[in-house]
Design a protein around this nucleic acid. Sequence first.
DNA 1: CGACACACCCACACACCAT
DNA 2: CATGGTGTGTGGGTGTGTC
Length: 741
Amino acid sequence: MSQKDDFETPSTNDFVDAVEHPIRDDGKSDIESHENPQDGIFQDLAFYVAQEDVRQEVENLIKAHGGTVLRELPSGLSSKEFVVSSSNTADLLTVTAEYIRACCASNVLLKLSGFLVAFEEPGADTQPQNDDMTTTEAPKPLNVGTLADGATTNGQEQPSTSKKLHQPPNSHEHGNVKPAPGGSITGQNDSAENLLQIDVTTSSHQDEAGDTPQNPTTPTDPPVDKSEHALSSTSDEQASQVGVMNSLTQKKPADEVAKQRYVTAHNKANFTSEEDEFILDVVRKNPTRRTTHTLFDEISRFVPTHTGNSIRHRYRVYLAKRLDFVYQVDNQGKLVRDEAGNLIRTTVLPKSLKNKFVADEDYSLAVSIKRQFYRDLYQVDPDTGKSLITEDDGPSEAARKAITMDTTVKRGSEPTLSEYRVGERRGPVPREFFKTYAQMNPSHTENAWRDRFRKFLLTYGIDKYIEYYDHELAQNRVPEAMKNLTNRPKRPGVPTPGNYSGNAKKRKSSEEEQIAQGETPQERQIAFTSASGGAVDPSSSLAMADVDLLDEETLKFISGLRRDLSKIESAGGTAFEYPQEIAESIRNDFTNEEAQFDEIDPDSIPFPPPLATNDLFMPQFFGFESTRAFLDKINDVISRDYEASQAEKLVQDLCEDAGVRKTFSTSILTALSGDLMVFPRYFLCMFSFKANPPLNVPGIWTREDDETLRHGDGQSMKILTDKHGTGRIEMRKRFIASDLV
DNA sequence: CGACACACCCACACACCAT
DNA sequence: CATGGTGTGTGGGTGTGTC
């Protein structure tokens, strides 16, 4: 509440716009007018002051006017974060120190134009961060259309940001590659993939689906048989665009505001350049999924002002031309890296997930099936004419042959293969056939080949298709693949595929089992909050983007969260508010507990503590001088100015700065119901009491505690309440109800 | 009124299961 | 086992309503 107000500009575009016109006579823009003018002009904005000579001065000004001072370079994904510097070498939103001074002098958030520092391109191209800086039409390499054949350029992944300032340099990119045995670069082996692993079963055929000329030259008798189309269904649902947007907007005040500036009026939000870049980036990192719906639906989790439908449309219609390159993936669709660990740019698009059958494929399948039948029938090799029956056939083999064989045909008087007609014969076709066929013809999977056979070849007719194909060739025409032969009845109650509207999501989620309000493990991290905080803010999704979750691993991970997310949406968002009284109560408890649990002398704990094992801590942890030094660092990290949305970043920072493995810090956060205040206590007690998790420590939930909370009797509940206090019990119940534990 | 955001469509590739 | 039934969501759109 009250927090925002002046300027909640999510995107640079809007940023400028907002100031551009709505400034009114009273000096306030329309959107800002409503709330506390005293919040400061930089309220909700964050700055990293890179220019040393003015740092002190500028930081003071920023703080004095309600802004946040960043300790490291922003990721570039949030338009509420700026670099203050006279130069822009990282392609981040950069303003001059003069901008800060001028704003402060007039006590108004001024337009950026005139104060923006253009990106000084080092050499390679970078990803534009916003229009303001890139309207000059970047170099623009290739067109998507040309992606077909191109040399592989070995581009570096985002030369922008980071480097020195350990800002998670697209942490995901080198992250989560696998919990590789040998340990990984930063210690990714962590959080995400441990929490869940929903698989996106990609069929892995290899590349080069030899593009058959498939030009429809409308042959005489196109292999189209039945069914124009069935009933054009009347969709029963109204196009009320509620959807994600609304359900999310209801969620939190902060979120709400975040959205408001996108959503000018009604329900449609314009795409900002930031969002555009974000979408492109995700597509580049998931090139095999570029045509799917789900990828865009997943993206929409991070860009909640738009639905999967609209993001997909946006990409297809506007952004695809700007794709320019993608990152190289292996045949599983996983990103590959060069020796330096960088992603590799390429202009060659990988195969997508499903391949259309082309005429050649249909034809060779038909011929292969025909040959199979021929062999079965006559037990003669169609090419050599040699008998397939041998002395050393086992009894079962001989029996099988006897069954499939046409005994009415005299040996030696079999027709030739071309004379032979399959006729009504539909089988049997041994599974082995499709298996080996798929091995030899990896453009489709075994299942797909079999299905093609069943649904198309059999329907159309094997002989007929062979005839058709040969005939077309003879006429110098290009045969077409079979089509329009699937005629599966529409089943009621099944949502139309390929519709990722807000409605669809809502409907889906409400059909799913009701678990009160769920947050996903991903959001579980986001749920971290201190009890002192009041409401938890699940964050603007773009802030999550900040956190960098965009490689394919992560998106897979995210896709596994979809069900849960739907739940949240359907829950309408009341889920994670820490009601005032609860927060109050927890705060009180905390204060009372301090003496007993927080004032353990860290110097009394040897370093490294015996419980500090490799699976919980990174190598750099063991570089600390003492337990105190480690705890100081922990305190340092958690006292940074994280927004509730930045749990992932917190976890990342804990990993990088304090050497706590992500899995471990994530599990701690879970044990604490997200209450950061208890974080240092966890380590103190763990080391000091030599127990992980430490037992009998208020605020630290053990498995048994949760069990008791779920099923305990009055007596054990009483004990539990004594341990944690009523406030935490209340919050824990919500955690459990939301499936977070 | 055109451009854009978003909803909606559907054939079918690929999958898995029961019989 | 071979086979049919059928779930799922891709791939490539089109339709509709708002900005």
